[in-house]
Design a protein around this nucleic acid. Sequence first.
DNA 1: CGGTTCCTTGAGGATGATCAACGAGGGTGG
DNA 2: CCACCCTCGTTGATCATCCTCAAGGAACCG
Lengths: 195, 195
Amino acid sequence: MKPQIDLELLLSYGANCKKYAKGEILFYEGDEALYYYQIVEGSVKMYNSNDEGKEYTQGYFSEGQSFGEPPMFIDECYPASAMAFQDTEILKLHKDRFWKILDENPKIERHFLKLMARRIHNKATTSKDIINQKPEFRIQAFLDSCKKSREKELIEFTRQEIANFTGLRVETVIRTLLKMKQKKIVDIVNHKIFY
Amino acid sequence: MKPQIDLELLLSYGANCKKYAKGEILFYEGDEALYYYQIVEGSVKMYNSNDEGKEYTQGYFSEGQSFGEPPMFIDECYPASAMAFQDTEILKLHKDRFWKILDENPKIERHFLKLMARRIHNKATTSKDIINQKPEFRIQAFLDSCKKSREKELIEFTRQEIANFTGLRVETVIRTLLKMKQKKIVDIVNHKIFY
DNA sequence: CGGTTCCTTGAGGATGATCAACGAGGGTGG
DNA sequence: CCACCCTCGTTGATCATCCTCAAGGAACCG
């Protein structure tokens, strides 16, 4: 995927490249947002964990994407934590230098304005779907958001991950997927989900 | 409240002032987003209504605030409908002219970048709360978002409106408020809610 | 005073959460 | 190659909660 900002440019403004092993935490909910993060390789999960165990996944970010900018833009703390979802390589730039990039590159600033707009648009669509209650509907909305192409494709998430994203429980996800299989909405072959 | 963009400036770029009676629709979910809207006086509700009756309120906007920009920024359709929540006066500017304002006023563009960031930050916080399930928690999160000051104040929303915002049913809101009254979280005097 | 809108209460039912096991596959080290 | 462990998937039974439906009451406004 085309990166938000050209890697050379980021490096020329002083960005550092860092590697994180799968499962490593990049920052915690409540931390001050001091850096711009852009993924060179791998993927990252943003999530909240509530008082005990239950986790809510806000979103996944992959190669070329940036994340965690909103609180950095407005000097707030992170509303969620970030964890490497795979082994991941990330460019990290201090926010003062990031603002310098925007000051000196109006096109990039415009790009981020549109990016933020797109994120809001997605969130609005998502919350509409989540409120809808019905597990089947929520799961299908998640599956839609996974899909890139038009053909049936393998869904690369565990049932637990789907549960965390949709706010349901694993057992409910499993039982609902069963129903969706019977309705021919998904295929399940060898425990693998195709949609 | 301080307006997003100075009214004189908007008018000088060709904005039109329009009045809407309470309950009037400004645009529907699915409409193309062709205009920038800024409230001069009154307030506006953004909402989704699903196949039959049930409504989900995405948010309220009041004097000085703009709304519906995200889809305009990215040439998408509105993910929700907008209705005048009170009698309302609005400045409306075609998106081509709006882009012209941003092109010619870097400070305003920066302002909108931060505004979009703030909206995302709020949405992230809200969805974290909504997923939490517990009606009491959801309602309290809504009440928190209403409050401006530190003292107990009258909540100017009907129980139905709270229900639509939190994704609960009226009866559940009523019964939960009852419990919250017993726990001294809210006061209810003469059917009016104080928090 | 009549109508509308909003609030309230009760009973009953559906549904997703919870709890408790167990199964299946994959990887690792002996 | 086998035994073990760990993660992920699966199933059934039970429970709590919120929704649904139905009815009526209270407040407000012309």
